[in-house]
């Protein structure tokens, strides 16, 4: 059983990768890249990496992540200066205390998964 912290970090890595794939699949971004001289032949490799990451994440958590992503655009959001950047509500300071250490925390207001960068 992997620790919740590892699961949380795998989710963050997955969201970074999901966004990378979305960019690589966007015609506008591709055009910008090509204009600058970059080739993007490796989309398949990114999908493979995505599958690998998904396999490492607990099914329930992954389902929650996908649901949130569909509903809210971004499932995981950074907490910046004590604020959830998904809904701009203050995150209780107790969330960062040792009681919750290693747990995956959700914003009480919008439900998104919180990450402290």
């Amino acid at each position: 059983m992997t620790k919740a912290t590892d699961q949380g970090r795998a989710l963050v890595a997955l969201q970074d990768l999901d966004e990378q794939i979305r960019d690589a699949e966007s015609a506008a971004t591709r055009a910008k890249y090509e204009e600058m001289g970059f080739q993007l032949p490796g989309l398949d490799q990114l999908h493979e990496a995505q599958e690998k990451l998904e396999d490492a994440i607990d099914t329930k958590l992954l389902t929650r992540y996908r649901l949130l992503a569909d509903r809210a655009g971004r499932a995981v959001v950074p907490v910046v200066e004590g604020t959830c950047t998904g809904c701009f509500t203050n995150v209780p300071t107790s969330f960062t205390s040792s009681v919750y250490e290693g747990q995956i925390m959700n914003c009480e207001s919008c439900g998104r998964i919180l990450f402290w960068p």
């Binding site: 970090r9 890595a13 970074d16 993007l40 032949p41 490796g42 990114l46």
Partner: peptide, 20 residues
């Protein structure tokens, strides 16, 4: 977060080299 950055950069290079 060293590990997250490195993973993201490695994935980006998989997509295509960022060297011009």
């Amino acid at each position: 977060d060293h590990a997250l950055i490195l993973e993201m950069l490695r994935n980006r290079e998989q997509l295509g080299s960022t060297a011009l």
